[in-house]
Simulated scan of single mutants.
Amino acid sequence: MPDQRGYFGEYGGQIIPPELQSVMNEIDVAYEEIRQTKAFQDELADLYAKYVGRPSPIFHAKRLTEKAGGAQIYLKREDLNHTGAHKINHCLGEALLAKFMGKTKVLAETGAGQHGVALASACALVGIPCEIHMGAIDIAKEHPNVVKMKILGCKLVSVDRGTQTLKDAVDSAFDEYLLDPQNYFYAIGSVVGPHPFPKMVRDFQSIIGKEARQQFQQQNGTLPDVVTACVGGGSNAMGMFTAFLDDDSVELVGVEPAGKGLDTNDHAATMTLGTKGALHGFECLTLQDENGEPLPVYSIASGLDYPGVGPQHCHLKDIKRVRYEAIDDKECLDAFITLSRCEGIIPALESAHAVAYATKLAATLPADKTILVNLSGRGDKDADFVAETLAL
């Protein structure tokens, strides 16, 4: 999957003007051409090893396990990657593809700033100009990543319209992209957007699951019983889940933000409460009003406050291969502090949603069961915000 039209079941596709469809199809052709070449594969593998620091290890969180009680909790340490999260995995691939296609500028949106930092780093590495659009609220909230992006030399555009968060940053970046789609490259930051981006970003991120599956078997002699990851757009989760989709013994759980509660308007629980619609050039489950317009969404984690989700996630929910749960702000903050103080690992607020779910689930399972969490990013960017929120 996807099929030739870019659909995962009934989700995905290219809900865009015909002139943009031709541009997207050119990207697809170029991607399929370059990904088959040994030179590209060798260059990407070399960068993963020597630039990113892959493979990222799997860590048995023994003290967290003891505190939770029950099942053993393991962490796939994507937080140890260069730039601090999983985002660098696809940003390197997209930057190399943009250079291969002769593009003159790479554009992107960012929420928590991890995609922005990773793409700015990748563009600096390959020598191509980079422009990042970021909501004004997120710029104030994620100051460390804002500084990093500026140091790395990208042009940072503050988005002051709408909710001033991720959805509006996507809109703003796409408006800029439409000015010259032939020469600009929109490096979408998740498994969302028109075909071929959900496929392409998934493929680059699948390195996470390929490593994790092999590592876990080597360390434990078996596969994990449960694999879980946070879901906003869904790139880190899809990167982890892909390698386990054919393993019926492995339960897959995506964790999305319940925000201030599913009974309020302040959440981004797309998989739990969304309905089918179109957003940013593709069909997916969305949180929308009666006119089909995206609703304002909220999460304490800037990287998760998106009113849609990757089309493959929607399909995996439909066929019941992946189960989706929601974690609220309080549970997220509790997990953030607990992991920090039990294991000396400060997680990103995004990743803390998956940690929170894992600790809840562990308490319901026997000690011989195992849960593997994709710890998708580190919490440097969130430290000041959390300290202020909790009055530490």
Rank of each mutant, 00 (worst) to 15 (best):
I337H: 10
L279V: 09
K38Q: 13
D382T: 14
H143W: 14
L20T: 10
A120G: 07
E142M: 12
E78C: 08
Y184C: 01
L119A: 06
D79R: 02
T264F: 04
T270H: 11
L304G: 04
N265I: 11
L75F: 07
V157Q: 03
I132F: 09
E94R: 02
M200H: 09
S351Q: 00
V250C: 06
S340F: 06
E325K: 14
R323C: 08
G209A: 11
C314N: 13
A68L: 00
V117A: 13
Y7C: 07
I132N: 01
S340E: 02
I151P: 13
Y306T: 00
R54D: 11
T264V: 08
I34T: 04
G379F: 03
I58C: 09
L96H: 07
Q218N: 15
E66M: 05
T242Q: 13
V322Y: 12
V170N: 11
Q72T: 12
F216M: 03
G232P: 01
I300A: 08
A278Y: 09
V255Q: 10
Q182P: 04
R5M: 15
A39M: 02
A243H: 11
D329A: 04
L80A: 10
G12R: 11
D225Q: 07
D384Y: 14
A71S: 07
T110V: 00
A95G: 06
D305P: 03
D329C: 05
F174C: 04
F100V: 00
N220F: 08
T275D: 15
I188A: 00
T370G: 01
F216W: 01
A335G: 13
L262M: 09
T364E: 13
A124D: 09
E94F: 01
G259P: 03
A112G: 10
G93D: 05
T165D: 02
H82F: 13
L252Y: 10
Q72E: 10
G70W: 02
E32H: 15
P307S: 09
E256Q: 08
H133S: 03
Q14N: 13
G162W: 12
V309P: 09
E251Q: 15
A61G: 05
D42P: 09
G274M: 09
L47Q: 04
Q72N: 02
T228L: 05
D168I: 00
K76I: 00
G6R: 09
L156V: 14
N291M: 04
D42R: 11
F59H: 01
T338Y: 10
A45V: 01
A301L: 03
L80K: 07
S376N: 07
L392E: 15
L97Q: 01
K87F: 01
T286E: 12
A363L: 06
E94P: 04
V226I: 15
S376A: 13
G277H: 08
T275Y: 11
T338Q: 12
L156W: 02
D382S: 05
M240A: 13
D247E: 15
A268I: 00
A362Y: 01
H280N: 12
H133N: 00
G127W: 14
G9K: 07
P311M: 06
C130Q: 13
A335L: 08
C314M: 12
E256G: 04
